[in-house]
């Protein structure tokens, strides 16, 4: 246990966190406010997001990089959306029944996608699914880590990822990016 405490008690980590906090707190508040339209709630969201960022500091190599900003903004947006859902007692967005459920991307050849196309495709997936997808594939987080970051169970993360991929496959097919193998 002492080893565990020592392993986390690093000056370097603390400085990194303090740097990120000072540099991005306004951006995170701004992003949270953009979703919640309530300054007090935005503060709640940003503070919760910073706590989750602290727990995932290892995922941040360069605090000045775009990837770092994308990571912390993904977290604060997710926390804000969760708060918004709680506030409005909204149920999660229900996906329409897809005819493409049986579509297997494995059987298709996916065209070379430009970065712009990828961006547009992922924008269509839906915020919650996209967040889980990004944390999994761009930041190599386990379902359990994602669950802790998003405030849901690892089991629920599995569902989110399953659905994100299903939706992405359908979008690829509908957009003509996936072609049946000859």
């Amino acid at each position: 246990m002492i080893l565990l405490v020592l392993a986390f008690s690093s000056e370097e980590e603390k400085s990194k966190f303090e740097y990120i906090y000072e540099k991005y707190k306004n951006l995170l508040l701004h992003k949270a406010y953009g979703i919640l339209h309530d300054y007090m709630l935005a503060e709640d969201a940003a503070s919760e997001a910073f706590l989750r960022i602290y727990k995932n500091l290892g995922k941040i190599d360069d605090p000045d990089s775009g990837r770092c900003i994308a990571f912390i903004v993904t977290i604060v947006k997710n926390v804000s959306l969760t708060l918004l859902q709680k506030k409005a007692k909204n149920t999660a967005e229900e996906l329409p029944e897809q005819q493409q459920d049986e579509f297997r991307l494995e059987d298709f050849v996916v065209s070379e996608l430009s970065s712009g196309e990828i961006y547009n495709l992922l924008e269509q997936v839906g915020e919650e699914y996209k967040n889980a997808f990004l944390l999994k594939y761009a930041y190599d987080m386990s379902n359990q880590e994602i669950g802790k970051t998003m405030g849901v169970s690892a089991n629920h993360v599995g569902v989110l990822l399953h659905r994100a991929k299903k939706k992405l496959k359908a979008i690829l097919q509908e957009g003509g990016y996936a072609h049946e193998q000859a």
Partner: peptide
């Protein structure tokens, strides 16, 4: 998926 996620994170990060 990894390629797509990396590309998105890069662009999204630059935009942010």
């Amino acid at each position: 998926f990894k390629k797509m996620a990396d590309s998105y994170a890069e662009q999204y990060g630059n935009e942010l």
